[in-house]
Design a protein around this nucleic acid. Structure first.
Lengths: 100, 100
DNA sequence: TCAGAATATCAGCCGTTGCTGATGCAGCGG
DNA sequence: CCGCTGCATCAGCAACGGCTGATATTCTGA
């Protein structure tokens, strides 16, 4: 036995699906603006810069994947990054892609 | 100055595009089997387990993005991971997604 | 020179994704 | 009670992505 498989088949599928959820300019930008803490949908709309409908749909995707969690407060909904793993991943992306 | 933008708009777009190229089960698996070193197309076909045509197209995607580099030798073509950055990224993916 | 192996490319189908605009729906303030 | 704000959802369209099967290309060895 020279070399065992790097990752189990299942891990690969899961990892690819997670990356796919993140691998979109708007969604990645959402994660970036949320890496500083929770924001309301409105704030995200303003900072990211597209329609409210569009943002809401992307937020739903990230929420359904468990990447973001929503917290309702009065008539605002605050979103934040759900798990430390994703937060770490966003940081790694910065390290890898933001040269220097 | 409390906090400057996490990434420039351009970096976000580039990072998202790169992740998108990787965020596919077959392509991620290709990267995994190549993380141990260069392999011929045939070897990749066998290890990944889909049609030659399909593999060739995915290799083309990864090659065009600069993620893989091809090296022709006799009538075989060997592919390997092109830059250290991607290699590092594959390793990080393993850390993040392959728990423990 | 010819058969066949190794790889690339092409055409075409079909399911998915992303966006827009419209509408639904809750909660708050007047 | 009513209008408004904040957010979600829906319908529909256009574009993209992934797969298969067929064909092209290049190289090798007999």
């Amino acid at each position: 036995m020279v070399r065992q498989p790097i990752e189990k088949e299942e891990d690969i599928v899961i990892a690819a699906a997670s990356m796919k959820a993140i691998a979109h300019p708007l969604r990645l930008k959402i994660l970036c603006v949320l890496s500083g803490g929770a924001l309301s949908v409105q704030d995200i709309v303003v900072q990211v810069g597209t329609s409210q409908s569009n943002i809401s749909q992307h937020l739903a995707i990230l929420r359904d994947k468990g990447i973001l969690v929503a917290q309702k407060e009065a008539n605002h909904v605050y979103y934040r990054i759900g798990d430390a793993r994703t937060l770490k991943l966003v940081g790694l992306m910065r390290d890898v892609f933001c040269s220097v």
